[in-house]
Amino acid sequence: MMNSLLGALESGMLYALMALGVYITFRILDFPDLTVDGSFTTGGAIAAVMITSGAPAWVSTLCAFAGGLLAGTLTGLIHTKGRINGLLSGILMMIALYSINMRIMGKPNVALIGEKTIFSSVSPLLLMPFVVLAIKLLLDLFFRTELGMALRATGDNQRMIRSFGANTDYTIILGLSLSNGLVALSGALIAQQSQFADISSGIGMIVIGLASVIIGEAIFGARNVFFATLAVVLGSIVYRLVVALALRIEWLEQTDLKLITAVIVIVALVLPTMRRSWKQKAVARRRSLEIGSEAERNSVGGGL
């Protein structure tokens, strides 16, 4: 039991970087980017191939990050310069990356057993808290800079930030790039932890990322960027704990996981909208009563 909890904590932190990437596109940019499924594998592929050919683990990991940056940039270019719908741009890139990942790895699976990885000398449980915290804080800081604020405004009100002189094509590309960089970094770390890279490791990654973001926001709230990124990291860990617990249930199969994840996301997405419409109805009812009694008194309100 303890082992599986620690395991969940460990993978929660490893996948947290991917979840932060998904947070940047889905929540900050308001861009449903499906590149993630491809770029996660790209990260693992680049790291695995470089490590097996003798490159230092940290160089390989950084190159994986750069590979993700590039993938995100391409999705951004397809969307902004090619004027292709965002969802489709991501899907196109995801499909293209499948072939590219295969080319990088040369075969569907690259083993890292016996190779010197980042985690050869230090356990992920010791290293990852620092890595995740550092990246989270750097992101928080970035989103408070002028450029970072322009990026947030691009997702919030594109027309407005353009009227203040920001090039929204650029901020969209930047956000997608940063997001996929983090996703690929997460893929590279996961490959080193599990000691293999697999062509299909990214499948469904976008939904897992979304689940982490949504679970985190639901449990821990997201009043501002600081708490939102914290919630995403914790959400990723909670998601892994839920999965670990679910896997202890006798009649559930490993392959049921993706179904469970999809259901979690659907429920979490539907609940807030339903709650909002209930609330709205209640407010409308109260207001119409108020207006009714106001009309009786025949008084007029003023001011802002």
């Binding site: 970035f142 408070r144 800079t145 002028e146 450029l147 970072g148 604020m149 920001a166």
Partner: peptide
């Protein structure tokens, strides 16, 4: 102005 990495 060009938007850089200074805190807003």
């Amino acid at each position: 102005k060009s938007r850089g990495l200074s805190i807003g």
